[in-house]
């Protein structure tokens, strides 16, 4: 059974259709990529999957629960986490604190017990710190732990965002262009990281422009064009799909594996 089922999803902004009657299923335990030219509606799709936008029509089901109509924090509670295309770090906080925010749903204490520093706060803080360290370790960020997020270079921030999302312990991780702006070494590392995340049992839904990365890391690929589905299949199927090749002017997908 699919982890995420999207059916007949439609969204338009002031007459411009961003997503039109889109349906697809994401099976669990895979890296599932969504590609398409700029303006194909990929980020809009992500924003609907995470509850930031509400679709005009259609349904999104995650582990058999409806997503449409829920606030982003409620969607997160279902087990969906994400990273952002333009970094949305908490630049006013340290690296460790950033990732500890990710542990929000795994902890319970409220404003009141925090104000009085009840003993359970201490226990919870210790646990959160430990979880955050683990998430940072997965992303090879251990050495930045004491720094302020605002002082880090771009490539590190990209991974920090992933660490923060992992601290949520999601079942599905939405990654919006994790390799954008990265150099070749960093991209390679990102590829390994995505595979590691997938192998740890987290399903990854990936939006990415770097075709090399997409073809190497994905189990299945969905190609969007003007908000609708152009093709769907394994990387090999996609590379040999005539419509895809035409849409990409025949050039971009033909690269050496």
């Amino acid at each position: 059974m699919a982890l995420l089922e999207v059916e007949a999803l439609t969204k338009s902004f002031g007459g411009v259709t961003a997503i039109a009657d889109l349906s697809f299923d994401v099976p669990p335990g895979q890296v599932y990529s969504v590609i398409g030219p700029n303006g194909a509606g990929k980020t809009t799709l992500f924003n609907m999957l995470s509850g930031i936008y509400h679709p005009d029509d259609g349904s999104i089901r995650f582990m058999d629960q409806g997503v449409v109509g829920r606030q982003p924090h409620q969607v997160a509670a279902l087990g969906v986490s994400r990273t952002f295309q333009n970094l949305q770090m908490f630049f006013n906080m340290s690296v460790l604190d950033n990732v500890m925010v990710g542990c929000h749903l795994r902890t319970r204490t409220g404003l009141f017990s925090a104000a009085l520093r009840l003993p359970r706060i201490k226990r919870e803080e210790k646990l959160s710190r430990q979880w955050a360290r683990e998430a940072l370790a997965i992303c090879h960020l251990d050495k930045f732990i004491g720094q302020e997020a605002g002082s880090l270079p771009y490539g590190v921030l990209k991974r920090l965002e992933i660490a923060r999302a992992l601290a949520v312990e999601p079942k599905l991780l939405l990654m919006d262009e994790p390799a954008a702006g990265l150099n070749d070494t960093e991209t390679l590392e990102m590829r390994k990281l995505i595979r590691r995340i997938c192998e740890s049992g987290i399903t990854v839904l990936l939006v990415e422009h770097n075709m090399g990365l997409v073809m190497q890391v994905s189990d299945r690929i969905l190609v969007l064009d003007y908000g609708s589905r152009l093709a769907e299949g394994t990387p090999v199927e996609i590379q040999n799909d005539r419509r895809v090749i035409e849409a990409y002017l025949g050039g971009e997908v033909q690269y050496a594996l």
């Binding site: 995470s50 509850g51 930031i52 606030q71 982003p72 924090h73 997160a76 509670a77 986490s81 994400r82 952002f84 949305q88 770090m89 908490f90 630049f91 006013n92 906080m93 604190d97 500890m100 925010v101 990710g102 542990c103 929000h104 749903l105 902890t107 204490t109 409220g110 404003l111 925090a114 706060i121 919870e124 803080e125 959160s128 923060r164 999302a165 949520v168």
Partner: peptide
């Protein structure tokens, strides 16, 4: 936890929401 949530929504409201 509550204090971090406050600082987080200062940093980025949408990311804070996504962290639950």
């Amino acid at each position: 936890r509550s204090g971090r949530a406050l600082r987080a929504l200062h940093g980025s409201e949408v990311a804070a929401e996504m962290m639950g």
